[in-house]
């Protein structure tokens, strides 16, 4: 993400084999991604404006969208604080077990989402050794989203923190800045783009999450039902137009996040 740089110079023009490669790759990409996504938008549009309004003003759908957005924002806020702290500890601190923590961060990426739900249920469900039972509550939605989005901020901030020059901090300190001032005025500003990129990714993931919620949240209408579950219900009820309407809203959010990320990246690469 943040690592991706734009090529330094224009390169070869297309010749026979590479043009063929491009053609085949583009056909596959269209069949797999572009045409199906276009079908979602077009199905939503074919239902007309009424379909859109009816679907999105449906009480249950609104409750689902509200829950999804609120919990995703909450989780993103937690990730901004905790993710930055975790990255800081992993880069700047040295202690026994740090390597293990580094692996723990990757587990949510690696675990299948359905297993992630099962895993959280073991500690926060009915048979919890902690004596709590968050299954089928809003807290369960929050926990699931926090679990699956854990690595985003950590993994975007970590490389930036590793590259930071200590000289600058030494200079700030020698000019009399306290450690807190140095952090606030020197370190934090250079971390902001990375934090923002990580936050955008975790928000997008939160909005679209499905698998980890299935077992954990119970998908109760008006209480723990999220947007993707709503889409699934519409599909199963044979209402593709309504499913597409909700899906289109989710696609637009995803697209906005991608545009935002691109803007952040370009700002960063211009500065560097």
């Amino acid at each position: 993400m943040a690592r991706r740089r734009r090529p330094s110079r224009a390169v070869g023009t297309l010749n026979g084999p590479s043009a063929l490669g491009l053609g085949v790759a583009l056909i596959w990409f269209s069949l797999l991604v572009l045409i199906p996504l276009a079908a979602v938008v077009s199905t939503a549009a074919a239902g007309g404006w009424d379909n859109f309004v009816t679907t999105l003003t449906n009480d249950q759908t609104q409750a689902a969208i509200r829950l999804t957005v609120v919990q995703s924002l909450l989780v993103t806020a937690v990730n901004v604080v905790m993710g930055t702290t975790i990255a800081w500890v992993l880069v700047r601190d040295r202690f026994w077990g740090r390597g293990a923590l580094n692996v723990v961060i990757d587990i949510p990426f690696a675990l299948p989402t359905i297993v992630a739900g099962l895993v959280l249920l073991a500690l926060y469900g009915k048979q919890s050794p902690l004596g709590v039972d968050f299954a089928n509550t809003e807290t369960a939605v929050f926990l699931a989203l926090a679990f699956v989005t854990l690595p985003f901020v950590v993994r975007t901030v970590q490389p930036v923190l590793e590259e930071l020059e200590l000289d600058v901090e030494e200079a700030a300190a020698s000019l009399g800045a306290s450690r807190l001032t140095t952090f606030r005025r020197v370190i934090l500003p250079s971390l902001v783009p990375a934090i923002a990129a990580g936050a955008a990714l975790s928000f997008a993931r939160g909005i679209s999450e499905y698998g980890s919620l299935v077992l954990l949240s119970g998908n109760l209408p008006f209480r723990t039902e999220v947007a993707s579950v709503r889409v699934l219900t519409y599909i199963e009820n044979g209402n593709p137009a309504a499913a597409s309407a909700v899906a289109t809203v989710m696609l637009v959010v995803a697209l906005l996040v991608i545009v935002l990320l691109d803007v952040i990246q370009r700002r960063v690469s211009r500065r560097g």
Partner: peptide, 8 residues
């Protein structure tokens, strides 16, 4: 594809 919900 990274930002699209699996259900979508």
């Amino acid at each position: 594809p990274l930002s699209v919900s699996p259900v979508v």
